[in-house]
């Protein structure tokens, strides 16, 4: 464990908690893409199946349980409890165009053709594009609530910090996982235009609104 990975995990945890609290406190999931949240629930489920089979550390296990629990709680709030506030019309990204190619790629390019390894690879590839329905929804509505932009900033920052963690591990532990690195770089690149808007607008107290 290094400081970059720890702050990355805490940034990821902050994002998940911010979103859950935003929906719970405002009793509304307006502006939130339910499809992205379903994809994140799939990402955690397929990646953390080893929860049952291997124990790495209390930190590792507890974070996985929290991530999975919050992900399903968020999906539940969006599609069940506060479904009346779910903006289905703007959450129209065709996720099958993500899941099918990612599934095919995971079968073709992986470290080991075993069930758990292919699921893990699928989870890594899926995570890199899971935010697209959310970013697509914001481009369609042309704006995002400020709390949602903080959620997205923390979420984007987490994988950016993981990239620094991989550089650190490469030099100090001679460890690197090309699949995770390439997917992580793609994932972080997808946030770049949002990061630009976040820094130039939200941090200056303005509302995030895209030129419609």
């Amino acid at each position: 464990m290094n400081i970059f990975r720890l702050t990355g995990d805490l940034s990821h945890l902050a994002a998940i908690i911010i979103l859950l609290l935003k929906i719970w406190k405002t009793r509304s999931c307006a502006g939130i893409s339910g499809k992205s949240q379903i994809l994140f629930a799939i990402v955690f489920t397929t990646r953390y199946l080893d929860l049952l089979s291997s124990f790495i550390s209390l930190y590792n296990t507890s974070m996985k349980v929290i991530y999975i629990g919050c992900a399903y709680a968020t999906v539940y709030l969006i599609y069940m409890k506060f479904r009346a506030t779910y903006d289905g019309n703007h959450d129209s990204f065709r996720v099958e165009f993500l899941v099918v190619p990612v599934g095919g790629l995971a079968v073709l390019i992986n470290h080991d053709f075993s069930f758990l390894e292919i699921l893990w690879t699928f989870s890594i590839y899926l995570e890199s594009v899971a935010i697209l329905p959310q970013l697509f929804m914001i481009s369609k509505t042309g704006e995002a609530e400020t709390i949602t932009t903080h959620y997205l900033f923390c979420l984007g920052l987490y994988r950016a910090l993981y990239i620094v963690n991989w550089i650190w591990r490469y030099y100090f532990e001679a460890f690197f996982d090309l699949i995770a690195i390439v997917a992580g770089v793609v994932q972080t690149i997808l946030y770049c235009d949002f990061f630009y808007l976040y820094v130039t607008k939200v941090l200056k107290g303005k509302k995030l609104s895209l030129p419609a």
């Binding site: 080893d50 790495i56 590792n60 893990w120 995770a180």
Partner: peptide, 10 residues
């Protein structure tokens, strides 16, 4: 193969 290395990242 790679999968022998413990996957310790979240």
């Amino acid at each position: 193969a790679f999968s022998e290395i413990e996957k310790d990242e979240l």
